[in-house]
């Protein structure tokens, strides 16, 4: 039943029509939410009692970390669906996400190290969370290089899917690294079983910022997918002519 519903959107032309309003909505929502969220985070939210003003880096660092993890999870599921159902559209979507994921990963690493200097006294430590996040960056790089290596053939689709599935081992390691090992990085304070431990005044701008960055991610991903479909159309037209 579900598969029938997915089948309807497997046609790229229909898919382009379906995603067009979503793209527009995501853009407007991203601009709106990021504006409100940045105002709230930078001006109205209270400074931390220990870290004072530097805590405001959190409102960029944490949402982009979440989104870069989400991007990898999406690549993983699209690759899995491609291997199971063999729709070319799935791998087309999965192949467009890494370039966005890597930019959010870079933002996370850079803001994290800038935040680490005033609070930990160092830009970088080789502890579990930071190292596993760096590994995520290199896995994204590998995926991008793999996609470029197969630019002119479809052989790369299946290898891209398998590599991204092998790379998904890293995601639970990143999530649970702060619980499994003793690290300098603080443990999770929002997604916990016993509710968030962060105060509401900081939680609200954090949620607004993360929704804004999520919509920004959706906008970028949909734009990339759209351009990839058009590119594929042009290539096949050239091939025919």
């Amino acid at each position: 039943m579900l598969l029938k519903k997915i089948h309807r959107f497997a046609n790229p032309n229909k898919f382009l029509k379906v995603i067009y309003p979503f793209k527009k909505i995501s853009l407007y929502m991203a601009v709106f939410l990021l504006f409100i969220g940045l105002m709230d985070a930078l001006l109205f939210s209270p400074p931390d009692y220990q870290q004072s003003q530097t805590v405001r880096i959190m409102y960029i660092h944490v949402p982009s970390a979440w989104v870069s993890l989400l991007a990898y999870i999406m690549i993983f599921f699209f690759s899995l669906m491609y291997i199971i159902w063999k729709f070319p559209l799935f791998i087309l979507i999965a192949k467009e996400i890494p370039i966005i994921g890597i930019s959010f990963t870079l933002i996370t690493l850079v803001t994290g190290s800038l935040w680490g200097k005033p609070t930990w006294g160092t830009y970088w430590v080789w502890d579990a969370r930071l190292t596993s996040f760096l590994v995520l960056l290199f896995i994204y790089m590998g995926l991008i290089f793999l996609e470029k290596a197969f630019k002119f053939s479809n052989n790369g689709d299946i290898s891209f899917a398998y590599i991204s599935i092998i790379g998904a081992i890293n995601i639970p390691v990143i999530k649970f690294s702060v619980d499994w090992w003793n690290t300098l990085h603080q443990p999770a304070s929002v997604f916990r079983l016993d509710g968030p431990t962060i105060s509401a005044e900081m939680l609200i701008p954090l949620i607004i910022m993360s929704l804004g960055i999520l919509f920004l991610f959706f906008f970028l991903a949909l734009t990339n997918v759209e351009s990839a479909i058009q590119e594929k159309k042009i290539n096949s037209q050239n091939f025919r002519g």
Partner: peptide, 30 residues
Amino acid sequence: SPISAIMLGISARGPMLTFITLPFYLPTII
């Protein structure tokens, strides 16, 4: 072994193989 099997299709595989395999080797090294 799976990464070596994947790379059978690519023409310029040497550097690609190294780059893609190394991140997966890191936990073992650590």
